[in-house]
Simulated scan of single mutants.
Amino acid sequence: MEKEKVLSIKDLSISFQTSAGEVNAIRGVNLDLYKGETIAIVGESGSGKSVTVKAIMGILSGNGRINSGTIDFMYHRGEEEVHEDLLKLSKKEMCHRIKGKRIAMVFQDPMTSLNPTMTIGNQIMEGMRYHFKTPKQEAHEKAIKLLELVGITEPQKRMKNYPHQLSGGMRQRVVIAIALACDPEILICDEPTTALDVTIQAKILELIKEIQEKTNISVIYITHDLGVVAKVADYVGVMYAGKIVEKGLINEIFYDPKHPYTWGLLSAMPDLDTNDELLYTIPGSPPNLLNKIEGDAFAERNQYALNIDHRVEPPLFKVTDTHYAATWLLHENAPDIQMPMELKNRIYRMLGEVE
């Protein structure tokens, strides 16, 4: 059975006007999302992960400019299949038709997402009342069900609470309940567990996974934590300097990575069984996107860089039907360079644990 595509990003390019000049934050991103699937976008801070999803939501800051590209969103209105380029919609149309209703977002810090002057109940009901004119009693009952769904005990009592009366983990659950209030087709999670401790983090990830199984919603995860990715994703896009440099199914990225940047990210994950005294770090820092990038953006930090990397940007080479990587190492004339031995051993250990 062919999978149903719900979102397609093509050649997205975004820049920001700053006092120092123009920052080319997104330099041609292509990504597809299918129904019921979870995509994780990973990469260091500043690689363009959050800017990409803010473009989907229509919430780029005022100095942001879309230079090119389309974000095609497909959904059903009754029997009719609708295709809409989200970049062409006005702010008003995004508010009325898309934001919160068909595409919802869970942000990093629940305290900045919640209104401190409104009760939890009213904040969950607000979207239903605005988008669907749901009667108050019906919205109230659905809000209680949503609080139960996200694992909050005594939901009746919590409806009357204010955000400051809840713990961080509970607030994040409330934010998820608000995001799900209008039964959206897509849920975007922008590092939803960063501000939480590890045990709560695991529960929130489990929760989003359970909700996805029940509702068949599509999820986009933004994170720099590969441990999170391993738990939630079906498909992974690795981002560096405003481009996706490797994308593939979760097993392809974790067990058969091809891009030296992905090797670096996987090597930098803490591992209990490693013999190394020090944790691996990728040398150097990401390029300044104020400057025009010649060749491969990762070349300066890449110990396996070839001469061509400093001159010509690599295309995405096909590894399998689902796996692509933008590195000249995959070119037929490139020298045979394998991933570092320590990473290879780590992957063997990970495979052993899985089996």
Rank of each mutant, 00 (worst) to 15 (best):
G284S: 11
E93Q: 14
T117N: 11
Q137A: 10
P314N: 01
P260E: 03
L33V: 15
P270V: 12
T194Y: 01
E84W: 01
L289Q: 03
E294M: 08
N251W: 04
T327W: 06
K344S: 14
L33E: 02
A40N: 05
I14D: 02
P135M: 08
I347L: 11
V232Q: 06
I26Q: 00
F317H: 13
A143N: 03
R158A: 00
Q156K: 15
M57Q: 10
A25K: 07
N30V: 08
T112D: 10
M105Y: 03
P184E: 02
F254Q: 09
F317L: 07
M239E: 07
L343D: 07
F107I: 11
T52F: 05
T215Q: 12
Q338F: 02
I26D: 04
C189I: 01
M170C: 07
F73Y: 09
K243A: 13
A268K: 12
A305H: 03
Y304F: 10
N67Y: 00
V29K: 05
T193N: 00
L329M: 06
G127Q: 09
W328Y: 15
G36A: 11
K35H: 04
Q156R: 13
I103V: 14
K92I: 11
E126L: 14
I186W: 03
Q108E: 11
D109F: 04
P163R: 10
G64M: 07
S15E: 09
D11R: 14
H310N: 11
N275Q: 13
Q303C: 01
H323E: 12
Y255A: 06
L351P: 01
L114V: 13
A241W: 08
V42L: 04
K133F: 14
S218C: 09
S167Y: 12
A299I: 06
N345Y: 12
Y75L: 03
V238H: 02
E294L: 07
I144P: 05
K142Q: 14
P270A: 13
E4M: 14
I14E: 05
K101R: 15
H83N: 11
I56W: 01
L272V: 15
G46W: 02
M339L: 15
G62R: 13
F132E: 12
Y240F: 15
D32N: 14
A177R: 13
G36E: 04
H76V: 00
G242T: 11
A268W: 04
G264I: 10
G69K: 05
Q338D: 11
V106Q: 09
R173F: 04
G151I: 07
G48S: 03
P184W: 02
I186A: 04
L226R: 05
S8H: 15
A181F: 10
D11Q: 13
L279G: 13
Q338T: 12
